[in-house]
């Protein structure tokens, strides 16, 4: 099995593993951020370029570096590959560039966005972006539209990750949801504004990394950080029935699928994502509909766990200092546990 070194940490992984998956096996802060890749959606990834890494050595057989940064989510590891993510200042700079591009036309309307507090773009900008913008031109604008009676599309916030397109393609039948127009004018749309009428259409909300696709039944009801998540289940004929309930007081404000630490819908033993049906998501909002499994551990998101960023900033500053002190190419010896997220 190939052995790959990521930010000076070696790991042996099964043949065909991507750099990103290998990094996720290591865990912690060396894992590249992802905005478009979604492990349970086929052909996802490669679009947003936030997960780029530097390949310092292609493989043991052919040790030449790869001249350009690669998308770690779509690049397979080779035996002897040496990858740098947060230990390459150059790579961090390139990623900051990508973050700036993603925010360029973004409305930054977090104060009125339902996704705030659990938004991957917020996470990404806190972790990798700069605090001011250099863009001085009017931002691209679209009108919000309804995709059916339960889902709202704010195209202004969309980063064109194509995840919802893949959900529509792979999980619902009779796809009528896709991308129209080109370049900067590209937008997510449904065929002649047709509502997606399908039991699983609500999953586009869960895969959307930003606030482009939101749940109309939760719209403007509360901020995410004022709600308390609990894991629960019910006997459902259509789906796994495994959900997360978002409470405020006694009231269930929202139902979503359960998500793992990468923000993806959790997988069952067979490795398939536990997508939930629209009935569980939109129609079962009473505590009596559900059996509670226990509280949810939230470990990563922007507003909910703000300390995370402070810790990360310090680690990155240390890394850069160490890199700066030594000529390029010499291995950085990180102290034991330096990259452990719990060691702050």
């Amino acid at each position: 099995m190939p052995i790959v070194t990521i930010d000076d940490i070696k790991i042996e992984v099964p043949e065909g593993t991507s750099i990103l998956q290998a990094a996720r096996m290591i865990g912690g802060d060396i894992v590249p951020p992802t905005m478009c890749y979604y492990s349970s959606l086929k052909t996802s990834g490669g679009y947003c370029r936030t997960c780029i890494v530097k390949v310092e050595q292609g493989s043991a057989k052919d040790p030449r570096p790869i001249p350009k940064p690669v998308a770690s989510c779509r690049t397979t590891v080779m035996d002897g590959m040496v990858v740098r993510n947060i230990t390459s200042p150059e790579n961090l700079e390139a990623r900051a560039g990508v973050v700036e591009f993603l925010l360029l036309n973004h409305p930054l309307d977090c104060p009125v966005c339902d996704q705030a507090g659990e938004c991957h773009l917020q996470d990404l900008s806190y972790e990798n972006g700069k605090s001011e913008t250099r863009y001085e031109f009017p931002r691209r604008e679209f009108d919000p539209i309804d995709i059916g009676d339960k889902i709202k599309l704010h195209m202004n916030r969309c980063i064109l990750c194509y995840r919802c397109v893949k959900v529509a393609d792979q999980i619902t039948d009779g796809r009528c949801h896709g991308v129209i127009n080109r370049g900067e004018a590209a937008e997510i749309s449904t065929y002649i504004e047709q509502a997606i009428d399908n039991d699983f259409s609500g999953n586009v909300i869960d895969v959307c990394p930003v606030g482009a696709l939101t749940d109309k039944t939760f719209r403007f009801k509360s901020r995410v950080w004022y709600t308390k998540p609990l894991d629960a289940h019910r006997d459902c004929k259509k789906c796994s029935g495994k959900v997360r309930l978002w409470y405020q007081g006694e009231e269930v404000l929202r139902v979503t699928a359960r998500k793992d630490e990468w923000g993806e819908v959790e997988k069952n033993e067979a490795g398939n994502a536990d997508w939930i049906c629209n009935e569980c998501r939109f129609d079962k909002k009473e505590a009596k509909d559900w059996t509670i499994d226990g509280p949810t551990k939230v470990d990563r998101h922007s507003v909910i766990s703000a300390n995370h960023y402070e810790g990360l900033k310090m680690i990155k500053a240390d890394t850069l200092r160490m890199m700066g002190a030594k000529p390029h190419g010499i291995k950085v010896e990180l102290g034991e546990g330096a990259l452990d997220p719990n060691n702050k």
């Binding site: 490669g46 591009f101 031109f137 064109l160 991308v179 080109r182 370049g183």
Partner: peptide
């Protein structure tokens, strides 16, 4: 180039328009 970008990847989709402006 701004006009012809397909819009899949962020650097080209966003960057080409910015440079033009």
């Amino acid at each position: 180039y701004h006009h012809e970008s397909c819009g899949q990847c962020s650097p080209c989709r966003e960057g080409t328009g910015w440079m033009e402006k």
